[in-house]
Design a protein around this nucleic acid. Structure first.
Lengths: 148, 148
DNA sequence: CCGGGCATATGGATTTGTTCTAAATTCTGG
DNA sequence: CCAGAATTTAGAACAAATCCATATGCCCGG
């Protein structure tokens, strides 16, 4: 059966509560974006979110997409991943993990958090706190390797 | 004594050889950029390089700054560090190390390579090779911490 | 139920780092 | 000295992200 327009198969109530749990007022637009983002763990660009959410008809403006993504990042609902000069990725998977980025096709892949063992910590300047530690593995297709 | 215009206190011959060792034809502009970049390990933006190199008089165009930085990255002379949506950093320190980025003042700091122990490696897709693994520690000033 | 006030949303213009383009300049080999 | 290739250049073009001024919606007091 076809999901209701813009629900992305995710219960509105559950999403609403999730937002509220993070201190976010669940407006129509925010709920819709959250429904899209959390339907499954994924890496999306702001533009991708904008396109997906407005696929059937205009529901959320570009400015609001950016505002909301920033808000979600700030409140720890999604992670911003900067690997590409062109665009930022937003990762709806909040569990501890790292990333693998292929420079040839700009594909971003998750790496389970336990694959790496990051131990020790750098000497921090005075009065700063660590927000997060991320590991990025950059790869490219091997020149003579398997066909793309 | 004042250094010759645009030499940045670095011997032209040594820099030239360094470029050639990396298969780069040492043109006037490339040597100048290299002299600036390698006078000391540093993190600079493309714009910063452009400004520094043209401080006294126009010597290198913006397009060439970008072309050259990309070339240097490609040939492993400098590292591109993507931590900020606003601008890319170029790191003239090529030794194994990681980075610490303060989101409040956009300051990028080196973290010695041995501070972290990154072990294990992710399952790679077929036919890809690892270009590099980087660890980025994001920090912010602690709200009630030392004055800024 | 009504109205004031504040947070939120919006479209469009703007900004800004980067890339592109087409032409000029500089090298290289013959 | 010439032809061809590589490099450099100025400025136009581009696109992601931000800004702005306005409109909308929501909550609360009366």
């Amino acid at each position: 059966m076809k999901a209701l327009s813009g629900s992305f198969g995710l219960d509105r109530r559950a999403v609403t509560e999730r937002l509220q749990a993070h201190g976010i007022k669940p407006t129509r637009q925010r709920v819709l974006l959250a429904q899209f983002l959390f339907q499954r763990p994924q890496h999306v660009t702001a533009d991708g979110v904008f396109a997906a959410v407005n696929a059937e008809r205009d529901l959320v403006s570009k400015a609001t997409v950016y505002n909301t993504l920033h808000l979600f990042v700030q409140q720890g609902l999604v992670r911003e991943v900067l690997v590409d000069r062109e665009r930022a990725f937003y990762d709806s998977n909040t569990s501890a993990h790292h990333h693998l980025f292929c420079e040839d096709d700009s594909q971003l892949t998750d790496v389970p958090g336990d694959v790496f063992e990051v131990r020790g910590s750098p000497q921090l300047p005075d009065g700063v706190e660590v927000i997060g530690t991320e590991v990025i593995v950059r790869v490219r297709r091997r020149p003579g390797g398997a066909a793309g």
